[in-house]
Design a binder for these strands. Structure first.
Length: 552
RNA sequence: GCGGAUGUAGCUCAGUGGUAGAGCACCACGUUGCCAACGUGGCUGUCGAGGGUUCGACUCCCUUCAUCCGCUCCA
């Protein structure tokens, strides 16, 4: 990890932005906790998103660049959904298999796809991994379709024999499958391509979704999954929202909430976590208008990060190539940030904007879809010709009153990571600069230049000294700021310069100081974090001044 | 998942087979009074966790957890 990233991680811990989850017990890989300041920061990120996308959206006026006016509403759906949701969405089939890894060849196999057969050869032996003992009776393994042939190849290779001696192999029983033998026999198995026996790990269930059990006496039949994305909660409620809220196409349904994925390698601080928060919009529109909306949302979402202070130098909008697109998508773009833990020229994804067509709604109507021989989406069938995963059977189409036609809307999905955005804002804010101390010598200053909307603490109030009535006056100013609903800090501890630096380090945009003049003329100073410029303003107008600067 | 490195105070790090130290930070008092001041005093650790060897382990061994790096993975 780069030096600058290490400094950011250290600051996050020192000042209470982000802590490792369950740290006193040694931590949990892939989980993070937000401390007091991180909680404020992330809430501000979330609130800014919700305000800018949903609650502050004026449905009577189309924003510039938008194809037309549109409506936006929010939902908040449960973390656990009916298991069939994940079967139809395609998440269930992706990984839910027992897997084994080979330590030697670093390859991974599905347990039920490995064929094995016991064999020995005139007392010839194969070394066993770890114990280094000589085994004369081993089980060779293959994943080849033509397993009978390859088992011979594997056996000859394991014993170091030439092809012409194949008849010397003494087979013991017929070929079987790795999932049908006892775990205690694994030390005798020579994995495909391996030179030693016993290099396979214990079989493990490999599932991207976190499993849980519903019901106090639950068995595996009651298995459910924590949602791996918030989007499905929106799709399955599409009909409910349409029927209950008088929305008309085009409109968006939004949701902010936690999702869970068993990441294989959680890494890079909070960037890839197993529990994370998403901010998603599913924007429904007429199929013939979808391409215009895709472009609108892609550009709108990119601009959102710029408006909150991300530098254009570190933020890119990357359109996926056609061959990268999911089969149902006609266009996908990522908004990516040059995180300090990445090499130069590399970017990490903050948000994906996908054109998903009618894939999701149709999947929940008809069952899990796949591309048929004509390239058209159709329900995936099982061996009996029935849908492999049955949909709800409910009609999720939309009736357009103006056009007098019924169709399944197309969907544009801007899906953002709240934790990733928060991390990007943290990285972007981190600055070290030089400022003079009281003797005029240049000193290193650590300052978090958060956008004022995102700053966890909006203002700090100091009495210049701890006497002559200044603390009391400062307490009044502090109270007025709190009454105005601003998260503020009061500090009378230590020298004034040190107090300014403490606030710089947590990114407080404004510091208010009560001094000797306050007691005579009723003014205080307000100091700007970035410019260090101080202005005198009336003490009784502080809340008003700070509020107006925050909204500037 | 595989391999390597690391883990001691809030932070950065010393340290030795005989039950722990520095600087910074933090707190109190005094002095100063607008950009990390000075003086005096004070607080802080189950030395990542568990087990083993030993009369005795922070130190040696094993296991485990976490972090970082490389490979792999990234649905």
């Amino acid at each position: 990890m780069s030096r600058s990233m290490e400094k950011i991680v250290a600051l996050c811990k020192r000042r209470g932005f982000v802590f490792q989850n369950s740290e006193i017990y040694g931590g949990q890989n892939g989980f993070w906790d937000y401390g007091p300041l991180g909680t404020e920061l992330k809430r501000n990120v979330r609130d800014s998103w919700y305000h800018d996308m949903v609650s502050g959206h004026n449905e009577l006026l189309p924003p510039s660049e938008a194809p037309s006016k549109y409506q936006m509403v929010g939902v908040e759906t449960a973390l656990i959904m009916h298991p069939q949701v994940w079967k139809c969405s395609g998440h269930y089939d992706l990984f839910h298999d027992m897997m084994v890894d080979c330590r030697e060849t670093r390859s991974r196999f599905r347990l039920d796809q490995v064929r094995i057969r016991w064999v020995s050869c005139d007392g010839k032996s194969v070394k066993q991994d770890k114990t280094e003992s000589d085994l004369t009776r081993i089980a060779v393994a293959t994943t080849e379709e033509d397993f009978a042939v390859d088992l011979v190849v594997q056996a000859l290779r394991a014993f170091g024999m030439k092809k012409k001696y194949a008849d010397k192999l003494q087979w013991d029983g017929n070929a079987t499958r790795l999932d049908l033998i006892d775990l205690s026999e694994f030390p005798n198995v020579v994995a495909p391509g391996a030179t030693k026996a016993g290099t396979l790990t214990d079989p493990r269930e490999f599932n991207l979704m976190m499993k849980t059990i519903i019901g106090a006496l639950g068995t595996d039949d009651d298995a459910a999954y924590l949602r791996p994305e918030t989007a499905q909660g929106i799709f399955v409620n599409f009909k409910n929202v349409v029927d209950s809220s008088r929305v008309k196409l085009p409109f968006g349904i939004c949701q902010v909430g936690k999702s869970f994925r068993n990441e294989i390698t959680p890494r890079n601080f909070t960037f890839r976590s197993r529990e994370f928060e998403q901010m998603e919009i599913e924007f429904f529109c007429r199929p013939d208008a979808s391409s215009g909306w895709y472009t609108y949302w892609r550009d709108r979402r990119y601009q959102w990060y710029l408006d909150l202070g991300i530098s254009k130098d570190r933020l890119i909008l990357r359109d996926h190539h056609a061959d990268e697109l999911a089969h149902y998508s006609v266009g996908t773009a990522d908004i990516e940030y040059a995180f300090p833990f990445l090499d130069d020229g590399e970017y990490g994804e903050l948000e994906g904007i996908a054109h998903r067509g009618d894939f999701d709604l149709r999947s929940h109507m008809e069952g899990k879809l796949t591309k048929d021989e004509n390239g058209e989406l159709a329900p995936e069938l099982n061996e009996h010709g029935q849908p492999r995963h049955r949909g709800s059977g409910k009609d999720l189409s939309y009736f357009d009153d103006h056009a007098k036609e019924r169709f399944v809307p197309h969907v544009i999905e801007p899906s953002a990571g709240a934790d990733r955005a928060t991390l990007a804002f943290l990285c972007e804010a981190y600055h070290e600069d030089q400022q003079p101390d009281e003797k005029g010598r240049m000193q290193e200053r650590l300052v978090m230049k958060f956008h004022p909307r995102l700053a966890p603490v909006k203002a700090a109030v100091f009495p210049l000294i701890k006497k002559e009535g200044m603390p009391e006056k400062a307490a009044d100013v502090f109270g007025a700021l709190k009454t105005a609903g601003l998260n503020c800090q009061y500090d009378q501890q230590g020298a004034i310069g040190r107090r300014y630096r403490r606030q710089d380090e947590i990114g407080t945009p404004y510091c208010i100081t009560v001094d000797g003049d306050t007691l005579t003329d009723g003014t205080v100073t307000i100091r700007d974090r970035d410019t260090l410029v101080q202005e005198r303003i009336p003490a009784d107008r502080v809340a008003e001044e700070v509020t107006s600067r925050l909204n500037a």
